[in-house]
Design a protein around this nucleic acid. Sequence first.
DNA 1: GAGTTTGAAACT
DNA 2: CAGTTTCAAACTC
Length: 677
Amino acid sequence: MDNSQKKKIETPTPKSKFEDSPVFNYINNLSPIEAVRSIPTVQTFNSLSFTSPPPVFTSPHASFHRESRFFRCHNSVERSKALESLDRSVSTQEEVVVASGEVDLNKEATLEDQEEDETSRDRVDSPGTGDIVTQVLLDPSGVAPQGEDNASSSEDVSVGLRKILDAQKENDTPGCRRLMADAAELLVFRSPNDSEAFGCLVDKISSSERRFCAGVKLTKRHDITKDVQANDNQPLAVVPNQSVSNLHRGSMRRRCLDFEVLGKRKKDIADDDQQAVGDNKAESSSKCVVPGIGLHLNAIAMASRGIKINTIHEDSATVEIQKSFLGSTTPVQSQDIMRETLDQAENEPGKGLAVEEETPKPLVFEELNQDSLQKKKRKVEEPGEGDSCKRCNCKKSKCLKLYCECFAAGVYCIEPCSCVDCFNRPIHEDTVLATRKQIESRNPLAFAPKVIRNSDSIMETTDDASKTPASARHKRGCNCKKSNCLKKYCECFQSGVGCSINCRCEGCKNAFGKKDAYLLAIMESKQEEDLSKVQQNPNLSKEVEQNPSSDQPSTPLPPYRHTVVHQPFLSKNRLPPTQFFLGAGSSSFRKPDGDLTQARNEKKPLETVAEDKTEIMPEILSNTPITTIKAISPNSKRVSPPHIGSSESGPIIGKRTNGRKLILRSIPAFPSLNPNQ
DNA sequence: GAGTTTGAAACT
DNA sequence: CAGTTTCAAACTC
């Protein structure tokens, strides 16, 4: 349907049937283009206004601007979303201003009154075209969405289009093209908020683009920057969009662009860290971001206390990969989300925003960037709150050892640092890299994230922090002797995760999860696993019975490890290795007492898988006895649901198997929903 | 802010 | 690999 309508709109309308009609004559007198309006427009608007027909306008202008609109609209939503997160002092003031302005405008959009329309109209920069555009754009948005007479709204649209076209004749050139595009874009709006937002964006875009351009200006060696800068002097209403649009198609491209810009900015500033003494606030903020380019999962650990980051990055390279990955995937997600958000925003603006707000959480790169940014800001401004920003105070290590938090986090030291004789600066990049390599040669995972988080923990992003510990563990575990894992001396506690099998702590009282409880839970899982195994294959009963380790729940560490080593049950029969190592693949395990890497690798999977399942099951398997899980695990530590299910009865075995299958299917599904995962 | 405590990192 | 030293963050006063 859309296609046909599109054709009707774009191509000269087949007039054969209508040429004789009085209506057609009337229309024909009004404007050559009115033919479009005659029939298709009415339908088109009604339909198009609530759906998003992508390739409607194939003409360069229309298409081009439609993208721009998407770009803008998306940008608007994204900024609204960003505002939520930016309220936590993430972004530059400029961004905040822009975002807040758009949020307000979006709110206004929901009001749907003429006053707002006029107000928005007043905001339009160019009186001539802008007024008309705004009027045209806003009128339909205010009528159609209210569910009133479609015909009337269509009429409004038609009139509006007519006005646009008239104005087009008069004004010509850029403005006209813009009007044309805007009119085309108008047809794409799906909700009052859409159109309204866009109407607001007509004027907002200027500032937004300015911000964008300004941000890009900070970067160097970037094609986009060049383009944008090259066009910077041109009318913002056309040029920036064009520049962006030429480079990217669609709204998400802009989003990617933002990411890229951010990343580039960070990179570039990192390069110039020494010389680029912050001239302004934005730049200083960016400086804070700089280190993030190499930020790894240390930040995640930190983030678990404040902002949750759900993906594990090995190193900066991974981040880069993630970044590019984001660039390709975010759009898909963002488009759907934007659509959904906009729809929701109609009736539940807050909800819609919330959805959008949570969406970026999985965007690891963004999160990392913001995290790094927040770190710096918070350390300077509110040391107590997020505390996610690295700022070292090294005196003797020259910030070239893992003692240095910045260095350990894979970031350069920045101004807020109080380090002495710091070599962890971009100007000493060679030294830093060499040292880093040296350390990595000693311990390849030295810069790996200290906290292993499950790939599916996305789902926890919106949950309370109490769930985080269950899904993440410290890679090597702690070695606390006196702090009882109740203070930040404990890396597990500091990371907001519970102690695990890897910990050698004494008197663990980790508030996020005691080691003992963890062990107990896993052992029970193992027991259940063995049980179910026996039930599945009676021949194994003897083996299990002869294996003391498998039924010694109270047995401390060594037996558990033994049982863990037997986890091939799990890995061999159920979960593919890739699943296992999604979250733990990079982890380095504490040196085992006797079992080496292989055993570790088998053990770790167990942990991860168990956690994965537990995290996912509630969402995937609606009928999963999650309560049982919690009941089984003391300390609220969650245990693998399948195990539990299997332990309850024989017949459940099949059920459990099914559950596993579901899990296997679901695990990969989540990453797709969250680009950065 | 200085001093102490703590545990990771580095070293032997 | 275990023990020791170094180091810097966390903590206390």
